Amino acid sequence: MPISPNFTSILEQQQEITFLHCYPNGYLKYTDLCNLLQLTAGRHADLGGISFTDMQAFHQAWVMSRMRLEIKKLPKWRDIVTVKTWVKTLENSRSVRCLEMYLNDEKIVGCETFWAVINTKTRRPEALALPHDHFQKFEIDASLAYTKKIDISTNVTTLANRKVVLSDLDVVNHVNNVKYMEWCLDFEDPTRLLNQEIATLDINFIKELNWNDVAVIQKEINTNTSIYSISKENKNAYALEINWYK
């Protein structure tokens, strides 16, 4: 698609929180927070002519490699939030994108994401084939800390094996990144999630999982920190580090 006449290098998009986004207490799910942020990032790519559809002409797609969220509080059902996004860096096959969520002009979430371009046939990274100079790059941080590589310990407890099913897959034909978080959070104390005790989330996407793969979910517990890892055939595919307020 051509670059939209409505394209701007910083996008602000309003979103109403619906009951479909919420936990039973009426507050936004952490997984749906990630979905809303990524939908805004995708909308910005659409407007700027570097969407999934545009990139498929060159057999390319964006895949997320790392994500960091710093959460002050969560919005609730019927709230109208504003999600703001901009590109911090974009060079060759790599890009850093920042996002923020506001409620009534108060910043409640800061997020930094690290993306890579892959060839959807070879599944290998390669330089973005589409022009992107019209995206102004902003050296503005949305979070206090950058995305990081999570240290996955060998001192872990195996929680479950999970076979990948069709509903886990996305348009790039691999397990959608939010699905991994959903699997992990299902092992947490629901009270902690409902009480909004998560301060930060750091996420690494290391290796693809595909239909019928068997994933092993493991967990390491430290003081105020929970670290999950998901692997296939002893090779890490995903890591999640949760830092708790309490």
Rank of each mutant, 00 (worst) to 15 (best):
M1V: 09
S4H: 03
P5Y: 12
T8N: 12
L11R: 02
Q13H: 10
Q14L: 08
Q15P: 04
T18V: 08
H21Y: 14
H21W: 12
H21S: 10
P24G: 06
G26H: 04
T31F: 02
T31S: 09
Q38M: 08
G49W: 05
F52G: 04
M55H: 01
Q56T: 13
H59T: 12
V63H: 08
V63M: 08
K73Q: 15
L74A: 01
L74S: 02
P75D: 09
I80D: 07
I80G: 07
V83A: 07
V83Y: 08
V83N: 10
K84D: 02
N92G: 10
V96I: 15
R97D: 03
V109A: 07
A116N: 05
I118L: 09
N119I: 06
E126T: 13
D133V: 05
A145Q: 14
Y146N: 12
S153Q: 07
A160H: 06
N161L: 14
N161K: 15
V164I: 15
D168H: 09
H174M: 04
V175A: 04
N176G: 01
N177G: 04
V178R: 02
M181G: 02
D189N: 14
R192D: 13
N195W: 05
K207T: 11
N212C: 10
N212Q: 15
A215H: 04
V216D: 05
E220P: 00
T223A: 14
T225D: 05
T225A: 10
I227Q: 00
Y228D: 00
S229A: 10
A237D: 00
A239L: 01
N243W: 00
Y245K: 14
